[in-house]
Amino acid sequence: MKILFITNIPSPYRVDFFNLWGQFPNVELTVLFLETPEEHKGREKKWYHTNYTHFKPIFLRDKVALRNHVIFKDVFHWLKEKYDGIIFGGYAEPTYMVAMEYLRLHHIPYGIEVDGGLINKDSMLKFFVKKHFLSSANYWFSSGKVASDYLIHYGANPNKIIEYPFTSLTAKNLKDALGDISINDKNEQDWCKARGAYRRRAREMLHVEEPVMILSIGRFIKEKGFDLLFCLLPYLDRSTGYYIIGGKASYEIDQFLKEHNLKNVHILDFKTPQELSTYFRAADLFVLPTRHDVWGLVISEAMAYGLPILTTDLCGAGLELVEEGKNGVLCHADDKSSLEKALYKILKMDLNHLGFESYKRIQNYTIENMTLSHYNYFKSQNG
């Protein structure tokens, strides 16, 4: 089984996914990357790992500038080979677009994979561009119902959509998150008691003094919506601790915290996955006030640690994984009042019960299952 996958960067979860896929019998996987870790801006270098053991990584280099865009010409060298499957990790990159047009011209089938998708109010031109490229594939990999609805909106054949559990967690990551806690041999009461023990130990390690700890993780960029949360903090319960991880506080944030004497708000710089695990275990609630996230992997990571979720209705993972009132609450994106109401609402609920439901819901979201979905599809197509 010879597969070509074309994507943008070697993100850690993708590298794990490619390595697992490449270990299946008779699989020869080649992955074309548009950027190296060194070239990609906006991510700490510690975020990456480069263990390309079970697949062939190719970093495209021969590029030509076209106005404000870049197209890698050497993609055509790889498209001329014969494959059992070709997948694009999206559609919006100029290199993807020209490669898709090449494949259509030569009647070579290909698929598009989306990690998520939210239907927007597009201009007529933008809608037709999206529809042209998204509808032209022969099959589609979708991260769930929300993404499938997105694909169908832009012309995908619903009978050719393969849904897979999109995640950044391996089965080992999921097991290690809360160690010996298992939903298979514990009822909810026992699970909550064991989860509470992890919480207490983690808080001792982090010296968390507040009785309730709310955790947020994400880069301090406008899309993540942390400015909306900051505006609310002076008016919220000062006994609740807010731990926001994602970068150094700007001068403006520092001044804001001092001006309002917000000693219960803790701005923390980038943390490694191992460091983050302690914060996940220590927390009571996870909040992501994003303005727009086609997925939001940090949601599934928080659920793996048994955390209830508060996020917005423009977060793909929230729409797919959070059931209102069962394992979390959704608010309207870019709406400070809605965020405030959602915070008050969820903090009156049984957070332990919500966390238990989150933990149950996320158990099948592993990279192993994600890989199996892809392998089984191509196995069924190629015999």
Score class of each variant (00 low, 15 high):
residue 13 Y to A: 11
residue 251 Y to R: 12
residue 377 Y to F: 15
residue 287 V to D: 01
residue 132 H to T: 10
residue 260 H to F: 15
residue 377 Y to M: 07
residue 103 L to C: 08
residue 326 K to F: 12
residue 351 L to E: 09
residue 211 P to H: 06
residue 6 I to R: 01
residue 197 A to F: 08
residue 18 F to W: 14
residue 65 A to D: 11
residue 341 K to D: 14
residue 254 D to Y: 08
residue 338 S to E: 10
residue 332 H to F: 12
residue 216 S to N: 05
residue 107 H to F: 11
residue 48 Y to W: 15
residue 223 E to R: 15
residue 374 H to I: 14
residue 16 D to Y: 07
residue 259 E to Y: 13
residue 257 L to Q: 06
residue 47 W to P: 02
residue 111 G to N: 02
residue 273 P to H: 02
residue 204 E to H: 05
residue 217 I to P: 03
residue 81 E to T: 09
residue 96 Y to D: 14
residue 290 T to C: 06
residue 19 N to Y: 01
residue 366 T to K: 00
residue 318 G to E: 00
residue 227 D to I: 06
residue 195 R to F: 09
residue 69 H to R: 12
residue 260 H to K: 08
residue 262 L to H: 05
residue 288 L to A: 09
residue 2 K to P: 07
residue 248 K to N: 14
residue 51 N to L: 11
residue 267 I to N: 00
residue 67 R to Q: 12
residue 32 L to K: 01
residue 348 K to L: 13
residue 294 V to H: 07
residue 126 K to W: 09
residue 104 R to K: 15
residue 218 G to D: 01
residue 167 T to G: 03
residue 152 I to F: 11
residue 4 L to H: 09
residue 216 S to V: 07
residue 158 P to S: 10
residue 99 A to R: 00
residue 220 F to W: 05
residue 291 R to F: 05
residue 95 T to R: 04
residue 136 S to V: 07
residue 337 S to I: 12
residue 175 K to D: 13
residue 52 Y to L: 11
residue 28 E to Q: 13
residue 98 V to C: 10
residue 270 F to H: 14
residue 227 D to K: 05
residue 261 N to F: 01
residue 199 R to I: 04
residue 379 K to A: 13
residue 101 E to T: 10
residue 49 H to P: 10
residue 302 A to L: 04
residue 181 I to Q: 00
residue 234 P to Q: 04
residue 173 N to C: 04
residue 87 I to H: 00
residue 157 N to Q: 06
residue 250 S to L: 06
residue 241 G to K: 02
residue 169 L to F: 11
residue 176 D to Q: 13
residue 327 N to V: 10
residue 103 L to S: 10
residue 229 L to H: 01
residue 366 T to E: 06
residue 211 P to D: 05
residue 310 L to P: 03
residue 367 I to K: 00
residue 373 S to Y: 03
residue 36 T to Y: 03
residue 129 V to F: 10
residue 231 C to R: 10
residue 57 P to D: 09
residue 48 Y to G: 09
residue 26 N to L: 10
residue 76 F to D: 11
residue 44 E to P: 08
residue 63 K to G: 12
residue 327 N to Q: 08
residue 79 L to I: 02
residue 156 A to I: 08
residue 106 H to Y: 14
residue 156 A to S: 12
residue 199 R to M: 12
residue 42 G to Y: 06
residue 266 H to G: 01
residue 328 G to W: 00
residue 369 N to S: 11
residue 373 S to H: 08
residue 81 E to W: 04
residue 175 K to A: 15
residue 198 Y to F: 15
residue 76 F to T: 04
residue 99 A to W: 00
residue 356 F to V: 12
residue 216 S to G: 15
residue 325 G to H: 08
residue 253 I to V: 15
